[in-house]
Write a protein that binds this DNA or RNA. Structure first.
Length: 659
DNA sequence: ATAGGGTTAG
């Protein structure tokens, strides 16, 4: 079924022009030879009557300066002349020349030409001058659908979503019908907005328009719709649109797979990926599809499937594509195979900042803080400048490894050495770094002294640290702000309740739980995955649907009795309910990662490493149980929680109980 | 003449 393509056959993008530049040479090739033979100097041009053609020629030669010198001497420039001048301004990335061309165009009375208006709008859009684009649009009275589409596209690219909808309303009022291009631009405007108002409702309205006007078979419009719903996190809307598409292509499939991968549904992402391979002949996965699939493998710790995809990548010659290789490296690292990730990195013949960042965070999640810092420095000495994610990665690595001093120095170097101002995310990393290391007061002080208004991520980092070190007073302070900033985030309530429970403040636990119920919020259920023989099995906390978990649960009960004889003490204080001890122990045994571990013990060979991933942070009890099991069952167990890796072997965890 | 999906993070 797999077709072999050598690497040399893969298409490379043209190097000299920006990707958006329309470098069609259609007209160029039609030029008579005598013009091509002309030298583009002003002295030769004087004898030529047809200056129009000469200006056009100069534009195609990339000699915009000379062309602009000639322009005032040409009494009747044609549409084509101006089109080429405009394209040339884009190619030279010169707004000032663009404005000159625009002025001449107005003087020559061509400003009502809708074709040229379209070109001008897209020129200003490319040159990042949305105000000029808008001026052209406002002055154009003959607005063809091209003109409308151009302004929609320009506004969307500039992030002015709201303006798009004002104009779109006008267009509808004028009775101008949308075409398939209009829908894609206007849909994208829903997610391209600088304002915080949710434009999901707008997206749904346009969805209705599309169906009402018979565009449900337009692959582009429907694919955009899938993507827009995905970006709003509306996975079920996205998948129902996808499901009803009469025809799909590789982009539609990729959009849907990416939707699952990006919205914490990696299981479905891989399922769809498999379906894509099995059911479609003409839309086989390409590099973009592979990247999303790799992301899903990483999220699930599905190493076997990840290796399979690595094979596809090699066979299809996609191994020279940087983003693919970075995704591959990340997949291996996230599956606990740091060495394989390193190997991918070293085999890359070119590396960009993303490749370096991937390696930095790979060391980070494995707890190798010093190594991550070293790679960060190597990156700089190789002439690659760190970006904001490089700092998040390296600060995160310091945090996992408890490298407080080093982390603080790196944070300070952002401004002093790299002239980058820390964003909310960077402050959150710093707070996490200090808080995790039990320097909670200093963490709180960082928040006080921030030069931007502290947002939920920063307060959330503080709250997380309060959970680890059981600091009720500071937690309450963080929650006061968090409940204002993000009242719908159930996780904050749960953390606070956890802290109260640990402090045995049962009345407060009850109060927080009532708050959760009153606001109709639900805590995210704990969920763990394990891959056995290339199939991924998922376990939910208190899982009634999975027949496998009954067997796993029985094994756990047996193990826990044995472990108790050998010194295991159930960490019942973390149970949020005020129950009898025995009941609490039962609750603890129902945790999804324990079920997954037990399932792994039953269904894999003794020599196999058990690999598990979990959607939440690993709880203390599961951590100590897994340590016990690794010793008594003599098994290597790797668990990846939301934050990092835990390699359990012989009763010890690689995190050194610091996580 | 204009269009759709992707990489690194806590």
């Amino acid at each position: 079924m797999w077709v072999f393509f050598p690497a040399s056959q893969t298409l490379q993008p043209p190097s000299s022009f920006p990707a958006h530049f329309n470098y069609s040479t259609r007209n160029y090739q039609k030029l008579p030879i005598r013009f091509l033979a002309l030298k583009p100097s002003v002295s030769t041009t004087k004898g030529i009557g047809d200056k129009n053609k000469l200006i056009q020629y100069l534009c195609k030669q990339g000699n915009l300066k000379e062309a602009l010198k000639l322009l005032p001497h040409e009494p009747n420039p044609t549409q084509l002349t101006y089109e080429l001048l405009i394209l040339s301004c884009i190619r030279h990335d010169s707004l000032s020349d663009g404005l000159v061309v625009n002025r001449h165009l107005v003087d020559d009375g061509l400003d009502q030409d809708p074709f040229l208006a379209t070109k001008l709008i897209s020129m200003y859009s490319e040159l990042d001058s949305i105000d000029d684009a808008r001026k052209v649009f406002d002055k154009t009275t003959k607005r063809t659908i091209y003109v409308w589409n151009a302004i929609f596209r320009a506004l969307t690219l500039a992030g002015h979503g709201i303006e798009v909808f004002d104009l779109y309303r006008q267009m509808n009022r004028f009775g101008i019908p949308s075409d398939r291009f209009t829908y894609t631009f206007v849909l994208k405007a829903c997610v391209a907005s600088e304002c915080s108002v949710s434009l999901l409702q707008k997206g749904k309205e346009i969805h209705a328009h599309i169906l009402r006007h018979g565009f449900e078979a337009c692959v582009h419009a429907m694919t955009t719709l899938v993507d827009v719903y995905a970006r709003f996190g509306c996975v079920s809307y996205a998948s129902s649109v996808f499901g009803e598409m009469p025809t799909r292509n590789v982009v539609s499939w990729s959009a849907m797979i990416a939707c699952f991968a990006k919205n914490e549904r990696p299981f479905e992402a891989l399922e769809l990926f498999r379906e894509m391979i099995a059911e479609t002949d003409d839309s086989f996965p390409n590099s973009v599809t592979m990247i999303s699939a790799l992301q899903a493998c990483g999220a699930l710790v599905a190493l076997e499937q990840g290796k399979l995809i690595h094979g596809f990548i090699l066979r299809r010659g996609l191994d020279s594509i940087l983003p693919v290789m970075s995704a591959l490296l990340t997949m291996y690292a996230r599956c606990g195979k740091l060495k394989l990730g390193q190997r991918v990195f070293h085999q890359m013949d070119k590396r960009d900042v993303v490749s370096w960042n991937s390696l930095i965070s790979s060391y980070g999640i494995h707890g190798y803080g010093k190594k991550a810092i070293q790679v960060f420095k190597d990156m700089i000495s190789h002439g690659v400048s760190p970006n904001h994610i490089s700092f998040i990665s390296v600060l995160g690595a310091c945090s996992h490894a408890g490298l407080v001093l080093e982390g603080k120095m790196l944070f300070d170097s952002m401004v002093s050495e790299h002239r980058m101002y820390p964003s909310m995310e960077h402050y959150a990393c710093l707070v996490d770094l200090l808080g995790r290391a039990n320097q909670l007061d200093e963490a709180a002080k960082v928040i006080e002294d921030m030069r931007i208004e502290p947002g939920p991520k920063v307060w959330g980092a503080l709250l997380g640290s309060c959970r680890i070190h059981c600091n009720v007073e500071l937690a309450e302070r963080a929650c006061k702000r968090l409940f204002e900033l993000e009242p719908r985030n159930a996780g904050n309530y749960v953390l606070l309740a956890d802290i109260y429970a640990e402090a045995e403040m049962w009345d407060e636990v009850k109060r927080v739980k009532q708050l959760l119920e009153a606001r109709k919020l639900q805590k995210v259920p704990g969920c763990s995955w394990i891959e056995v023989r290339k199939k991924v099995y998922s376990f939910m906390c208190v899982d009634e649907f999975n027949p496998q978990s009954e067997q796993a649960h029985a094994l756990l009960v047996k193990l826990s009795t044995e472990m108790k004889d050998k010194g295991y003490v159930p960490q019942t204080h973390i149970v949020l309910y005020d129950l009898e001890e025995e009941e609490k122990e039962r609750v603890l045994l129902g945790h999804s990662e324990k079920l997954a571990v037990a399932f792994g013990l039953i269904n894999t060979k003794h020599s196999d490493t058990i690999r598990i991933s979990k959607n939440l942070r690993l709880c203390e009890d599961c951590h100590s149980v897994t340590k016990f099991i690794s010793k008594f069952a003599n098994r290597e167990i790797v668990v990846r929680d939301v934050n990092r890796f835990h390699h359990f072997q012989d009763g010890v965890c690689s995190c050194g109980d610091y996580w």
